[in-house]
């Protein structure tokens, strides 16, 4: 294990999203469905809002506290899933779960900035940090489907 692995983990893109998060802050408007998830062992605490119109994610928001991997990933997630249909969002999310674990994933899907999290696979303890916001979005979408 070396610092080059660390550098790969904390690539510029991740740090950029950590410092300048996109779609941050919850909205008190109609049409937003909210899910709050916590990782009790490390204190990551994320709330994600999704807004669906005509089967499409027209907006996603996030708010919370956590490490750089957790917070930046929430920002990347909202960007990546925006304007996607619910089915596309689910495929992208599943694909993301594979890539953070270092498994093969579908490179043809529109994954946005999210492939930068491949570095997380070398740090298994951090996979939960990278995926918590995606799990929140997935849960929100599933709740809306019911």
């Amino acid at each position: 294990m070396s610092f080059s692995n660390l550098e790969q983990l904390y690539r510029q893109v991740i740090m950029d999203h950590y410092k300048n998060p996109r779609n941050k802050g919850l909205l008190q408007e109609d049409g937003y469905h909210e899910v709050h998830l916590k990782n009790p062992t490390c204190g990551d605490d994320i709330t994600v809002q999704v807004k669906v119109e005509d089967g499409k994610l027209v907006d996603l928001r996030h708010q919370g506290t956590g490490c750089s991997i957790c917070c930046s990933s929430a920002s990347v997630m909202t960007q990546t899933l925006k304007e996607k249909t619910l089915d596309e969002a689910q495929n992208i999310t599943n694909n993301f779960y594979e890539l953070v674990k270092g498994n093969e994933y579908d490179e043809d899907l529109d994954m946005g900035d999210s492939p930068v999290y491949q570095g997380v696979s070398k740090f298994p303890a951090r996979v939960k940090c990278a995926t918590i916001s995606w799990k929140a979005a997935e849960q929100a979408i599933n709740e809306l489907k019911k």
Binding site: N5, L6, C42, G43, G66, C67, I69, F123, A125, C129
Partner: peptide, 27 residues
């Protein structure tokens, strides 16, 4: 963030604890 720091220590072969230490009221 302590979790980011703990990964640095991990890469150096150093075990330290990061988290709320089962003491959330104290956090």
């Amino acid at each position: 963030h302590p979790h980011d720091a703990a990964t640095i220590y991990d890469a150096e072969g150093i075990c330290v604890r990061a988290g709320h230490h089962c003491a959330q009221p104290l956090m």
